[in-house]
């Protein structure tokens, strides 16, 4: 992987990234790509022309101060912003070679292909089994109960939760601890066999031990999925990601290989942020 750094001029005059305009359409290692994406919430211009690629089998971290738009941008990838009445998304987002806003794309199917894990663990108030089985059930991914059992087991195993809950699959998902709930949510997301997993600050509600477990899990999952993680913790971004994007006030300030971005940031703003001078 070459260290390709998307440099952008000052936020006041956003321009398309000059160095890399190749997209998922012509590069097999690129899973998703955003081209000049703008998001408006009513009168608020939340994302101002962001262009970046998300690589397959890599963890991409989105960092930046609160309110910089990184969560909003994350929610563009599975069109969760559609559920917000006042939100308007412009620009092009490709999954493999296809524009996800194209009329022939079914948003419900898109969200099965691009799974999401939220900041606060949000298991359904149903049993652990039903939580994981829900996605396969509504998408008709299994033919019989035995298949479903298998999907539930492998998903929980991949999420590293199987050993802890295999003997009590019928208890409500909400009765688990916070960290277990978040792993249950991850198991639920991978049960529909997505291609990309979006995680919106998945560890911010968890204690350090649970956080460490989730981080290990993300490292494991990277072998199979493209993962985009929004995080507040720069240490976490440095630990788990291969690429990091720094957002500020709706602009993508800098995007590059994680090691390079943290050790030798190209932009003054990035340097200030990662050295803790502001943000």
């Amino acid at each position: 992987m070459t260290a390709e750094t998307t440099k952008q001029p000052t936020p006041a005059a956003p321009a398309p990234a000059p160095s890399d305009l190749s997209t998922a359409a012509d590069r097999p290692d690129v899973k998703m790509s955003a081209r000049d994406v703008h998001v408006h919430y009513g009168d608020t211009h939340a994302i101002k022309g962001v262009t970046m690629n998300v690589n397959a089998r890599e963890v991409t971290a989105l960092i930046g101060p609160s309110g910089c738009g990184k969560s909003t941008f994350l929610r563009c990838f599975n069109r969760m912003n559609d559920t917000v009445a006042s939100a308007r998304v412009d620009g092009e987002i490709l999954l493999d070679t296809q524009d996800i806003h194209a009329p022939e794309i079914d948003v419900v199917q898109l969200r099965a292909r691009v799974g999401m894990v939220f900041q606060k663990p949000n298991p359904f108030p149903k049993s652990i089994y039903d939580n994981v089985a829900y996605g396969p059930r509504i998408h008709g991914l299994v033919r019989n109960r035995a298949d479903l059992d298998e999907v539930v087991e492998t998903s929980l195993q991949k999420a590293g939760l199987w050993d802890e809950v295999s003997d009590r699959l019928e208890v409500p998902g909400t009765s688990l601890s916070g960290g277990q709930q978040q792993r249950l949510c991850i198991a639920r997301a991978i049960a529909v066999n997505p291609e990309v997993i979006l995680m919106d600050e998945p560890c911010s509600a968890l204690d350090p031990i649970a956080t460490a477990r989730i981080e290990e899990l993300i490292e494991d999952l990277r072998q199979r999925y493209a993962i985009v993680v929004v995080t507040h913790s720069m240490q976490q971004a440095a630990r788990i990601s291969q690429r990091t994007a720094f957002f500020h006030l709706g602009h993508l300030v800098e995007y590059g290989e994680t090691g390079a971005l943290f050790t030798s940031p190209q932009q003054e703003k990035t340097k200030d942020y990662i050295t803790g001078r502001y943000g």
């Binding site: 559920t83 419900v108 898109l110 969200r111 099965a112 949000n122 359904f124 829900y134 639920r188």
Partner: peptide, 26 residues
């Protein structure tokens, strides 16, 4: 809670499925 709606939408449930499977029972 909206988090339940988000969770179901994020899994690829339609609006009607979200309402029938999760919101209405709750």
């Amino acid at each position: 809670p909206n988090s339940i709606r988000d969770a179901a939408l994020g899994l690829g449930a339609s609006r009607t499925q979200v309402v029938l499977h999760h919101v209405l029972p709750a």
